[in-house]
Write a protein that binds this DNA or RNA. Structure first.
Lengths: 381, 381
DNA sequence: CTGAAAGCGCTTACAG
DNA sequence: CTGAAAGCGCTTACAG
């Protein structure tokens, strides 16, 4: 209960504390910041005043005076994507340790939105920005850095001179996935990639092609000639979502004349065919999906059509989000250490107490987590 | 490219603009804020100076002077829960419209963490706070309000005098789910609820009991006596996650002696039984899960054990997150308008431009979305 | 060891 | 219509 003597309940300022403790504001500031030498008796008087007033320093004023604020801007592609949210948890943890709060927002992976957001954040005089860049030129980000606000690129392999960056080797990750599929004997692989404009999608395509190229070279070298050459077909989906995965898979099945259930909402699902539909030989024996959400949508569509995973078709995802291991057919996927990534990005931004954070470019390596959704290809005639 | 004449690249202040435009800072401020009358010629000179300097007002200083900041704190239970993240998207939209940025963090639904967070946010001199309260007493929140910082309770039916709140009628929602199940003929229903300490879980239990009670009363009234009385068993899971749903379902199946696949990670899933295992009559014919994530975990475990959904067992979820409609068996669920909820909460906080936001208590009503995961109960002997 | 003073960048009456 | 000045709450040399 505040004493009834102060009806307006105005937030107490350092002046109020000084008056109550009968010292100057400078002294209050000193005990607050452990600066200078304050006599013990005085310190206690000040502390008592602080307690009795419930005084909390005004961080806006501190920020203005010190020229820094505890606000850190975080701009990612999409707030509802588990990859970014698990990373955000890691960032939050690291930021909180330094008393920083994070301002989270999404760029919808649009360079325009990114620029707008960055300008707004800069307007907030943030201490720094964690950005998953949509603009390969990094134009807006450069402006921010020019103003002296550090930017750390999150999930980006770019290595500009003036910004730290942290990334996962997407190329290697995709390569791992395709190698795994080929080692199981798959030669007709379909890649459900994300939008071609997105860097992660581009790199994962390169990685998939790397693995394919290596296999082809090896095979040419052996020149046995009787093995079928592995093939990779790529489709760019409109988004990294389960819905995109499901819809794309449905279209693919329909093109092959395989009946797909129409039930989606508000209708009962027709009984699943008891015998799997005959899959044409041309139908891929394996799908590599650019993230777990796409894999989830693709897998459920397949199963709805009576196609068994992994017996008829194998599936590999990317990310290893929480639900990957919980799917009906636990998903084989390329794991990214999301929490650690977020933590490390924030750590890079905050740097050590003394001096500016050094520019560093960190790269993490993904690992393949083998679960139940991949197996040898079905027998084709 | 900044002119090479300014090597330190210091952020320009209002003084620099004034000097360049040869006016006083007051005048610059006036053109900035459209206040007072500025001669057209002067205004243009000022605007030119602003452009050439790339001047952006320092919001920290503005906040200090005006006594408000554009930062809005948002504290929810869990950043990786899709319910909160879809809501956060809605909040972001509304907040951005007023030039506000959101500081997102999670309380882990712990009153202690909530208190710490709230204090930190208050320290940030935020303009307001959107909080999903973990502490039923709202102690920390009251402190915040006492300091003159508005708090809007998100996803909370509390109706304190000094805080607005917005909620979805969880009780009615749960009631809808149970009614639906009973109307299909289910009389042995299991409720996979969240932790008992969480308000949402408590309300959903009440709602489920309401529906059951009403059915019982109706049946007693008809007194035909030959119908079996509907029964509801409740289990409190440790968390609102897919993993909790899966684990709990596994334990339940094992208790009944139904074999469950051990494969989880790094192992191939044993072939699914071709004939569904015989389910004891005592095994529930329907499960109501306190959120879609739990439903997802429960459903996949069931299917792994060879139990068919909805033929053998029906499942209802809660929330209607994006993947609910995309599941292999599209999930019947109680839909909450998450984006709208978030938007409305932020709107309540920001209020109209003029004057303080009024205290309001908004309640939304959930709707049942019927999909494929529910059907009439299996035949029991 | 402590106080008085300047100043961070801005806004707002108040004179002219 | 415009300028000079006070002040938001704090920190930081600088005297004493």
């Amino acid at each position: 209960m505040p004493p009834s003597t102060t009806p307006p309940a105005k937030t107490p300022s350092i002046k109020d504390v000084a008056r109550l403790a009968q010292v100057s504001v400078g002294t209050v500031s000193n005990v607050l910041n452990g600066r200078g030498f304050v006599r013990n008796e005085v310190r206690q008087r000040v502390e008592a005043a602080i307690d009795s007033l419930g005084y909390v320093p005004n961080p806006t004023a501190q920020a203005l005076r010190r020229g820094v604020s505890p606000l850190v801007g975080v701009a990612v592609y999409d707030l509802t994507n588990p990859f970014f949210m698990e990373a955000a948890s890691g960032m939050e943890r690291r930021l909180a340790a330094d008393g920083c709060v994070m301002a989270l927002s999404s760029t919808k992976s649009s360079p325009t939105t990114e620029a707008t957001l960055l300008r707004a954040l800069m307007g907030q005089a943030v201490r720094g920005i964690l950005l998953t860049p949509s603009d390969p030129e990094l134009s807006a980000a450069r402006e921010v850095v020019q103003r002296g606000i550090p930017v750390v690129l999150f999930d980006s392999p770019a290595q500009p001179e003036d910004m730290s960056s942290i990334s996962v080797d997407d190329r290697t990750g995709a390569s791992l996935a395709i190698q795994h599929l080929m080692s199981l004997g798959h030669t007709n692989i379909m890649f459900f990639n994300g939008p071609a404009s997105i860097r992660q999608a581009q790199d994962r395509l390169h990685g998939a092609e790397d693995a394919l190229g290596a296999a082809l070279a090896m095979q040419a070298h052996r020149s046995s000639g009787d093995e079928p050459a592995p093939q990779l077909h790529t489709l760019n989906l409109p988004a990294f979502t389960a819905e995109a995965g499901r819809t794309t898979m449905r279209a693919l099945l329909e093109k092959e004349g395989i009946p797909t259930p129409v039930a989606q909402d508000n209708a009962s699902l027709p009984g699943r065919p008891t015998t799997p539909p005959a899959l044409p030989d041309s139908f891929p024996t394996a799908f590599f999906c650019a993230n777990d959400l796409i894999a989830f949508g693709a897998m459920t569509m397949l199963r709805d059509a009576g196609i068994r995973v992994p017996d008829d078709v194998s599936i590999v995802g990317f990310d290893d989000i929480a639900i990957a291991a919980q799917m009906s057919v636990p998903l084989t996927t390329v794991r990214q250490p999301m929490e650690e990534l977020g933590w490390a990005a924030a750590d890079l931004l905050l740097g050590d107490k003394t001096g500016k954070p050094r520019i560093q470019h960190l790269k993490f390596f993904p690992t393949l987590v083998t679960r139940a959704s991949t197996a040898a290809p079905r027998h084709t005639s």
